[in-house]
């Protein structure tokens, strides 16, 4: 661990916080139809779009209408993308003349991209044409917008005097035109300025000094990279993802990409604060979540800089764990990226997570299992509020206060739905892992024996369930078994909990807002913040500790005991 590393972290989090607060306010303005600088440019376009599609964007929706519109639009988006990928070999924009995509890869890829997961069971530059990549890029804009607006609909249920959750289509369009498109456009230009290429020219052929011919994959990288990070998508246009020198050429682009992935989910907490007219509440949630993430970052950073004692003994020298890392990012740049990408469920990688030290891998896994360390666009805030509801209920019972949240009474219906939404996550991770380990098809893909092999399988399903998309690459996930299994887990992980949260929103919307009284449990205090954090950690630990003990913890203890596999 170095002073330079710590200063780098401090600078990053200061800049992030300074940008996230205005970004959060801007998102509030966008969704509450307040004037923004893009009104003159985007306004006519949006109105034309609604007129053309026959949608009355002024009509407010109930939870049921909002949920159906969300699901229906996602289905409608998935179908053309699926067909483009299916027929890419006969469609234009295929300069490398790539052939058909296999059926299981097709299913997995579309399920993965329509859910904002971007889990990739294929090598992009060898599998997908430029047109297919553009189709996926469309989903990289539309799906984070979908997650974001569901979270906005949810927080509207707490807003005073509201009788509906808003109009899904207006929210979705405004999220794309006012937030993702302009932000990604600027980010892509900045990335190009710092050396990220962007071309439709197809692969370049180079003749090396030794006379060998080398084919270098090229693509519209900057455009893809910007929304890949900004939308917490994570799917690379090149197989090495953000470790590739085209996707992430230097320390500056690395910093920009880290900021892009963290900006909007962090800002959304402040948007939420504006909706409930309680900025202190937003700062409390931000504070405890940031504290947790910083603690986990320090675990990764210290584990990676300490290195592997077995390797030290073998080489006779001490040093950090450089395996799977890019020297241009260093230990701090790699540790921070690995922490952020699993906290914000982006899934982009600039270091190979399979090569992280056992404790580094444990943090990556644990963050995806908790799914509340900021989390992805919208989905993260929804998960945080799901735990807040449970915390209010549990604490209210303990101290004999009325379980109320932001003026709305929390009753059996909301707690049951929040409990179900919370249980789905461990159920699909652990259930799918159990099935994979119990079947020959599941075990065949495990390339590492012992504890690390178990970690690889759990990581795959945690990443799928959390809609993260990063992988412990030691597992061969491009088999039909894993393509189908992770695809199904991805779909359930995304939609079931979101629908349940919209159901809670509908239920809360129907309740009268009651003014705070002496009997109300205040949630905008540090005491409640720590209780919330404790409940997240206790539930997370109780649910996942056994599998973590059998995976990364056992691996760490074996390493310290000098055991090799």
């Amino acid at each position: 661990m170095t002073l330079q590393g710590f200063l780098g972290f401090a600078l990053f989090f200061l800049v992030l916080t300074a940008l996230a607060v205005p970004a959060g306010r801007y998102m509030y303005r966008v969704f509450e139809l307040q004037p923004t600088f893009l009104d003159k440019v985007m306004g006519p376009f949006e109105r034309g779009l609604f007129r053309l599609s026959g949608i009355d964007e002024t009509k407010g929706m109930s939870w049921r209408q909002y949920a159906i519109a969300f699901l229906l639009s996602n289905m409608v988006m998935a179908v053309p993308v699926y067909l483009i990928l299916m027929f890419q070999q006969v469609l234009p924009l295929n300069p490398a003349h790539l052939g058909a995509v296999s059926p299981t890869t097709l299913f997995n890829t579309v399920a993965s991209f329509v859910t904002n997961t971007n889990w990739q069971v294929y090598t992009p530059e060898q599998t997908l044409s430029n047109l297919s990549e553009f189709a996926l890029e469309f989903l990289q804009f539309a799906t984070p917008a979908g997650g974001l607006v569901v979270a906005i609909a949810f927080v509207r249920s707490f807003a005073l005097g509201r009788t509906d959750l808003g109009n899904y289509y207006r929210d979705l369009v405004r999220a794309v035109t006012r937030i993702f498109l302009p932000f990604a456009f600027v980010a892509a230009i900045v990335l190009i300025a710092f050396g990220v290429p962007d071309t439709l020219g197809g692969p370049a052929v180079a003749h090396t000094l030794q006379g060998a011919v080398q084919v270098i994959a090229r693509a519209p990288v900057a455009a893809f990279e910007a929304i890949k990070q900004l939308g917490t998508n994570g799917g690379g246009i090149l197989n090495a993802n953000s470790a590739h020198p085209f996707e992430n050429p230097n320390a500056v682009t690395n910093l920009i990409e880290e900021l892009l992935m963290a900006l909007l989910p962090t800002g959304l907490i402040f948007t939420f604060g504006q909706y409930i007219r309680n900025r202190r509440q937003a700062w409390i949630i931000f504070g405890v979540t940031m504290t947790l993430m910083l603690a986990l970052l320090l675990v990764v950073y210290s584990a990676e800089t300490a290195g592997n004692p077995l390797v030290h003994r073998l080489l006779g020298i001490a040093g950090p764990n450089w395996e799977g890392k890019e020297t241009r990012f260093g230990m701090s740049g790699s540790s921070l990226f690995a922490t952020l990408t699993t906290a914000y469920t982006t899934g982009a990688v600039n270091t190979m997570h399979d090569s992280l030290m056992p404790l580094g891998g444990l943090v990556a896994l644990f963050q995806m299992m908790l799914n509340t360390v900021f989390g992805g666009k919208g989905a993260g805030l929804l998960n945080i509020l799901m735990y807040v509801i449970l915390s209010v209920f549990v604490t209210g019972l303990m101290v004999g206060r009325t379980p109320e949240l932001f003026g709305k009474k929390i009753e059996t219906r909301e707690v049951a739905a929040a409990g179900a939404a919370m249980l789905i996550h461990p159920f699909i991770i652990l259930g799918a892992t159990a099935i994979a380990l119990a079947t020959a098809a599941g075990r065949l893909s495990v390339l590492n024996p012992g504890f690390h092999g178990l970690s690889e399988v759990v990581y795959a399903f945690s990443s799928a369930a959390a809609n993260n998309g990063s992988a412990f690459a030691g597992l061969n996930a491009s088999t039909p078994f894993y393509a189908i299994a992770t695809g199904v887990v991805i779909l359930i992980g995304r939609y079931v909990s979101m629908v349940l949260m919209l159901y809670i929103a509908g239920s809360l919307l129907a309740k009268k807002t009651v003014p705070a009284s002496a009997g109300t449990l205040r949630t905008d205090t540090f005491t409640f913040g720590w209780i919330y954090l404790g409940i997240v950690l206790i539930i997370g630990a109780l649910t996942f500790f056994p599998v973590l003990a059998l995976g990364p913890i056992a691996e760490q203890l074996s390493m310290l005991a000098g055991k090799v596999f």
């Binding site: 049921r64 699901l71 289905m75 699926y82 059926p103 299913f107 079931v496 629908v499 509908g506 239920s507």
Partner: peptide, 30 residues
Amino acid sequence: MAEDLLGLLGIVLFFLMLIWAVARWGGAKE
């Protein structure tokens, strides 16, 4: 081709099933 379409059918059916569940869901006050 048939196998390719099977995946698409799976995704569409998944969405239709959820939409049906939401549409049929009773008990929620709106």
